Computed example of a mutant assay.
Amino acid sequence: MTPDDQALAAELALGVLDGAELAAARARLAGDRAFAAEVARWEEWLAPLALAFPEVTPPAGLEARVLAAIDTPGAVPRAGWLRWGAVALAGLAAAVLALVVGPLRAPPPPPVPVPARPAPAPLLAALTVPAGAEAPGRAPLAAAVDRASGEVRVAAATVPRGRSAELWAIAEGGAPVALGLLDAGRPTRLVVAPARRVLLRAGTTLAVSIEPPGGSPGAAPTGPVVAAGALAEG
């Protein structure tokens, strides 16, 4: 769009055209998409101003005096004056919109940061040798549970040659659930499957049984339980 085209679009949006100029602008509006878009842009910019000020009736004879002043010798031609006035008024409208409407469209304040939830306290258990299960090499074991990651750490356990030590979780009133095999002679770290982490809570009993190589062939311990203890808040 040329500056003259933009000025004409502003004049049409402002309603300052009349006669042949108005008819020509309306005809162009119907057939020129770029011009129609420019007019729409001016109308969108100027619409808030029309709502912001009350309608005022001009004094009688004002139009005649203005036209007479424009038509005097040496005055700027009427069409040129209107075009200049339209551009000036449109520029003023844009400036007013920037000051009045701009603050209404200011970006929202940044969201208030939500404090991070503290990590749950670890669970601890002292797995002692049950009465009647004492035997050489059997000793209490310490266990710790990281509830955030589902990791269970168990101290080094003594495992008979050719056997496996298996860790179980037993909820109050529930059946034993296998958590995994312990390493022989060194600390063990087990990551419990997500579906079984519901068992990792205070009051659940951890137990260690001695099983055939690879663990219990069934869903419950088949060998002697050599250590057991309840989880508690650390």
Rank of each mutant, 00 (worst) to 15 (best):
A86Q: 15
T188S: 06
P130D: 01
G74V: 04
V16S: 07
G162P: 11
A143G: 01
S149K: 01
A178N: 07
A142G: 04
P122C: 12
P187A: 00
W84M: 04
R201G: 00
E134S: 13
V100Q: 14
A230E: 14
A52L: 14
P110H: 03
A94D: 14
A93S: 10
R117I: 08
R196W: 03
E172T: 15
A27P: 05
A219P: 06
G74W: 02
V112E: 07
I210W: 00
T72K: 11
P212Q: 02
S209R: 00
A219L: 06
V208G: 08
Q6Y: 05
A142I: 04
P103Y: 12
P136G: 03
L97I: 06
L8G: 08
A121E: 06
A143D: 00
L92Q: 10
P176F: 04
G15E: 06
V129N: 04
W42M: 05
L127S: 07
S216F: 05
P110C: 10
T222I: 02
I70H: 15
L123S: 03
L127F: 04
E44C: 14
A157K: 00
A9W: 13
A207R: 11
P108N: 08
A98W: 07
W84Q: 11
R83G: 08
T188F: 03
L46V: 09
L127M: 15
G91Q: 07
S164L: 09
P113W: 00
R197N: 13
A7K: 12
T2W: 08
V129S: 10
L179G: 11
P115V: 15
A90E: 12
R78H: 13
I170D: 09
A79Q: 02
P212D: 13
P130W: 01
W81H: 14
A47L: 15
A165E: 02
L141I: 15
L51K: 15
L22A: 12
P194K: 02
S149F: 01
T222E: 09
R33V: 13
V129T: 07
G185A: 01
A23W: 15
G218P: 03
S209E: 02
T204K: 02
V56W: 06
V225F: 11
R197S: 12
V100K: 12
G61W: 08
P110F: 12
P118R: 04
R33F: 12
A90M: 14
A69Q: 14
L17P: 02
G215I: 04
R33P: 09
A98P: 13
R201H: 05
R189G: 04
P194R: 01
A228E: 02
V208S: 01
D183R: 01
V129G: 07
E21R: 02
D4A: 09
L127V: 09
P3I: 04
G180Y: 00
V129E: 07
V177C: 05
A230K: 03
L89F: 15
L17N: 01
A135Y: 05
P109M: 13
P217M: 12
G218K: 08
V100R: 06
R186C: 11
G61T: 15
A75M: 09
E43G: 14
L89G: 05
E172V: 14
R196H: 05
V152A: 00
P217N: 13
A9V: 11
